[in-house]
Amino acid sequence: MSKTLLEVKNMHVSIHTDSGVIQAVRGVNFELHESETLAIVGESGSGKSITNKAIMGLLPVGGRIDEGEVILNGRDTAHFSEKEMNTIRGAEVSMIFQDPLTSLNPTMTVGNQITEMLMLHKPGMTPEQRKARALELLDMVGIPNPEERFGQYPHQFSGGMRQRVMISIALACEPQILIADEPTTALDVTIQAQILELMKKLQKKVNTSIIIITHNLGVVSSMADRVQVMYGGRFVESGVLDEVFYETKHPYTQGLMDSIPNMQLSNQKLYSIPGTPPDLISPPHGCPFAARCRYCMKVCEKIQPPEFTFSETHRASCWLYDDRAKGVF
């Protein structure tokens, strides 16, 4: 197996708010290998975004890692100071966000935003080298006339073009890991297709590992090598792309698959998962999905299910795979 770049061990993240303490991430374990794409799938509030913000040290006010380790290139960064994180962000791990407009500085030219990144992490470069590199990056992400675009401001770019700029900034210092938090959710389908193609192309070219956070299973199936499904602050199922899509184990993953209409079929009946995701201020004792599950047993409501292994890569946390649950449904 290829080299492991990032390993997250038993991470717990809580966010202190006025209404109470949100246990956003409740013990997640995963690793990211060299030049792979890992998709983290889940609904809003499932903790998928918080997991990655914790890795980046970008938790919102009141948020902190209570427990666990984030091992990046052999060192635990879970409790790094802001200053230490600054040397990592952009250089080793970069992030692109859902809304490219709010993540770009509106008062700075696009070119300066790229060169600023280079200035921070590559102090040895001369201004000329930085500019040359910035132009090269703009060209690489498919922005026409990079010379002219270099001096323009973010508002002069369209949504898709802004996301391309974001990607070029993120990749400026050749990070080993790129975290893409819903990178195409705010974009139209035709633009989304362009950005996804671009990310695939760039990954081959610069050999970066990507963590893509999304709720769109279509994006997952076109991008990912491995998938982790998150629900209620935990991973409920993880595996290689085909395992999760074609040998689905967890009822939540199955429910998600069934609630997307198939465009090839007509007059089908769409399954919908009833109910609402749990409020993580008071997370349920047992399986977080129990209240909405088609196959809920008494044990699911009381005790958190352990992880069952189906292959070297495929795991799911669900009591249905306990020997004692055979024949119940």
Binding site: A291, M297, V299, K302, A325
Partner: peptide
């Protein structure tokens, strides 16, 4: 006996 279907949980869903 915990490995038996739970009672109807639709009330709790919302």
């Amino acid at each position: 006996d915990l490995f038996t279907p739970a009672s109807d949980n639709s009330a709790k869903q919302e």
